[in-house]
Computed example of a mutant assay.
Amino acid sequence: MSLPSKVKIVEVGPRDGLQNEKETIPADIKIALVNQLTAAGFVNIEAASFVSPKWVPQMATSSEVMAAITRKPGVIYSALVPNMKGLEAALAANADEMVIFGSASEAFSQKNINCSIAESIERFREVALMAKQAGKRLRGSISCAFGCPYQGEVDVAAVVDVLKRLHDLGCDEIDIADTIGVGTPNKVQTVMQKLTQEFPIERLSGHFHDTYGQALANIYASLEVGISIYHSSVAGLGGCPYAKGATGNVATEDVLYMMNGLGIATGIDLDKVVDAGQFISTHLGRKAVSRAGNAIAAKRVIDN
Rank of each mutant, 00 (worst) to 15 (best):
M1C: 08
S2I: 07
S2E: 13
V7T: 04
L18V: 09
L18H: 09
N20M: 10
E21T: 06
P26K: 13
A27V: 14
D28F: 09
K30W: 02
I31H: 06
L37G: 12
T38D: 09
F42G: 04
N44D: 13
I45S: 10
V56T: 11
V56P: 04
A68T: 06
T70Q: 12
V75Q: 09
I76K: 09
I76R: 11
L87Q: 06
E88W: 02
L91P: 03
A93Q: 02
A95C: 10
I100C: 01
F108L: 09
Q110C: 01
I113M: 05
N114Q: 11
S116M: 05
S116D: 04
E126M: 14
V127L: 10
L129H: 13
K132G: 06
A134K: 05
A134F: 07
G135E: 05
G140I: 14
Q151W: 07
Q151K: 15
G152C: 05
A158N: 11
V159P: 00
V162P: 00
R165N: 04
H167L: 14
C171E: 04
D172H: 15
I174R: 00
D175P: 00
I176P: 12
N186I: 08
K187E: 00
M192D: 01
Q193A: 03
E198I: 08
F199I: 01
R203T: 14
H207Q: 06
Q214K: 15
Q214D: 06
L216Q: 05
Y230R: 09
S232E: 03
V234E: 03
G239L: 07
C240P: 14
P241S: 10
A243T: 04
A246H: 11
T247V: 12
G248Q: 10
V250I: 15
D254A: 11
Y257V: 07
M258Y: 08
L262A: 07
G263P: 12
T266E: 01
I268N: 12
L270W: 03
D271N: 08
V274T: 09
D275P: 02
F279S: 02
T282M: 09
T282R: 13
L284E: 03
G285T: 13
G293K: 02
I296W: 02
K299L: 14
I302L: 15
